[in-house]
Amino acid sequence: MTVSNDVSLPDDYPEDHPLHGRLNLNRFIFCAGCLIGTAITAITSCLVERGLTPKDYAIVSGIGCTGRSSGCFKAPAFHATHGRAIPFASGLKLANPDLEVFVLSGDGDLFAIGGNHFIHACRRNIEINVLCNNNGIYGMTGGQCAPTTSIGDFTSTSPYGNIEPPFNLVSLAAAAGASYVARWPGYDVLRLKGSIMAAMDNPGFSFIEVLAPCFTQYGRKNNLGDAVKMLEWLRKQVVIEKNCPPHDAEYSHKNGRIVCGEFVNSPREGFTQKIKQLRETAQKKR
């Protein structure tokens, strides 16, 4: 039996690593095996591959386990109040349209308390990229029922099984007018990174749903096991479909079918572009 002597916690990658200087390694406080950390590295490596430096981008998160992710970025990163990550990010984008703005937050944060902001950001098609870490539960506060919890699932506020139908996030985003919509399981990092790149290319509102099971709360209440077992459970249900309309993108644990893929990619003029045009016409009239 050996005990590691290396007790100094590193706070960065070695200098020859591409992600050197981009992440605060000692802020990864998530449960062992929770894919929130994977999403953080996926976003960061996409930004690095694009050649963006920390002054070219900003990260905003709300409150919750996923909300804690803003602390992990060595960049302008903002931990907004509960549900208000999207308005905060919209303000950043309007003040500085050259900034690449990412929102990384939980399903409860973006779709329960922040649901209103989400649909209006989609409607306006403001040029921000929103990643929702969907674990179908309020992870941080003790496993309460979320607007994404499937019917019949057990949570601490639905001890006899949930009776409320959940939101289908991709269908909601598409109906509200988002110009890029995708859904990927959190372990499929290559495809997720492809979507993050496409979201950066899209001149408008981009939404990516990332499936990142919460074994600590959801897994425990529904008897689904640890991190690895829950990913196995998820992988059995994931079906990747090409050109599937967003309203047919089934998400059902009961039927064992979660359709993943890219559902909407129809770029249209973004909100900051329209504001720019409006400013020009207003100045001409004066």
Binding site: M1, T2, V3, S4, D6, V7, S8, L9, P10, L25, F28, A32, G33, Y187, A227, V228, L231
Partner: peptide, 30 residues
């Protein structure tokens, strides 16, 4: 592998396609 940072979650072991990694059940970090 930064052993102090590693949580031993086994995801790398599961997802490595070539069986390169394994959790060291004999050693601990701090």
């Amino acid at each position: 592998i930064v052993t102090e940072q590693c949580d031993g979650c086994e995801l790398c072991v599961e997802f490595c396609p070539c069986d390169v990694l394994e959790i060291d059940k004999e050693s601990f970090n701090s």
